[in-house]
Design a protein around this nucleic acid. Sequence first.
DNA 1: AAACTCGCCAACCGCATAAGC
DNA 2: GGCTTATGCGGTTGGCGAGTT
Length: 559
Amino acid sequence: MSHAGSESEDGMLSNNQIESPLGEEGNYGGSANGGVALKKGPWTSAEDAILIEYVKKHGEGNWNAVQKHSGLFRCGKSCRLRWANHLRPNLKKGAFTQEEEQLIIQLHATMGNKWAQMAAHLPGRTDNEIKNYWNTRIKRRQRAGLPLYPPEVSLQAMQESQRCLNIDRIESEHKSQHDTLLSKNYGIPNIMFDNLKANQSILPYVPELRDITASSMLMKGVSSSQYGSFMSPIMHRQKRLREETTLLSSFSGGMKNEFHLFDQFQDVNKAAQSFGLPFPFDPDSTTKNPEFFGENQGSHTLANGNFSASKPTAEAVKLELPSLQYSETDLGGRGLSCSPSPLIESVDTFIQSPPTGTVESVCPSPRNSGLLDALLHEAKTLSSAKNQLSDKSSNSSTITPGDNADSFALNICEKEWEDYGHPISPLGHTATSLFSECTPISANESSLDESPSAETFTEANVKSEPVDQIWIADRENESSTWLDITFPEALLDSDWLEHDSACGKGQVIVNNAMGTLLGDDLGNEYKQMAAGASVSHGWGRSSCSWDSMPAVYQMYELP
DNA sequence: AAACTCGCCAACCGCATAAGC
DNA sequence: GGCTTATGCGGTTGGCGAGTT
């Protein structure tokens, strides 16, 4: 704004017009502030002392007043930055410890470039430090042709993503139960949070969840990488929503990165197929899936027009997670009629007045999640095969809007879940296995920066073959009813979740695929949840950590 | 010894948004 | 509601020192 603009202006005052109270030579080429040029460039110890003194007297904040009260010829912004990054107490100086480095990697795998949020998890460290560290690390590893994340971190993020994807699905499917449950004062099932807590062992930085509430979950859900725990507790609600939306967009950033990662493969199409993506991509997919860009505007992975899957980008690697920014041209070109702001507003609307009687979510859903979609598709394939054998009656699990949660739970639990609660996941290729097939895992890798060798990476291409084959076989078998795996809703609309058109969207028929989809651990969680007749509060479809997706899609970086 | 490259770091810049008027 | 100000965040730049050629 004007403030920022004034800072960057080069409204040069000649140096002889400036009288520094410090009598120091300095770069006063900065902006004029009330006729006084403000110094730029490195801070001197004298300036630091002045600033420290000022903060001691007046406290933090009101940074623009620093110059007035202290005679420091620095803009408020600069003062704030100096204080935050160098002068404030309890700052930890020096190199990052190994633990800190590991934490940063884990946090970044989950959050993306949310430096400020990451800094909140590293006491004494600043976002700038973390950012610098990360950028340096990226460069280093890029140069070495190493994966951005160690396999174990990628795997963790992958697992978290899948878990939350599943939770999210459950939530969407049960949203129709929402009002009934609320009226009966059902709470969030403890089991869910117990399970989430237990999962903390996976990512040790996940804070305690004991204080989590339905509302806080709702508030934090979309962006919360680890169950909503990354948001500052004092963060303004709308601010959170902004963050959430941004983080949702991080998902698309992850997708973008994903396609950068494909550049590493000799054969892009094969690489994509290894991840379960339908290659060759149709650049004009909008015409074939108009709803993708219209109704499902929440997914702006493609809508932002930042990448064309059919044209692997040759631009420089940019491991950023783009914010939710659209250009009119992009939107128009894609036939997208919405703008980002309606999305944000819709999220807000959703929070303020949760929708009733619909499973449609105002929150973006992670379409085109690539790897995860591959899993869904795979699960679907297996489930279809199973259905052919068992030919279960879907009516047994039909839920009517009037059903209470207990009956729903019984349906799920007794009719379906028993089949899939087996310790061994019915997913022949679970997220883990699929991932491992595509990830250059080095069993001996322990150090975070000791990444797989180039040889190992090459091996990954070979290992991905089975997935590739599954995919192709599936295409052949289902050529007549081919579903675009880039659009999981297509799966949900088919035999994954059979929306009973006669009874409305809220009436879902959960078939075997549901259990298949959920896998074992979440399946148990889901089972217990259902058995407890407590279907969780209707937070948004994307309440789970889509922002963790970048981890999956940033497994590799370009050399 | 000079030139060059690279990594690190501090600071700047642009942008978004909340708050106050 | 519109404008201005303050604040925060993430991306980028540029200076500097160390290492290499």
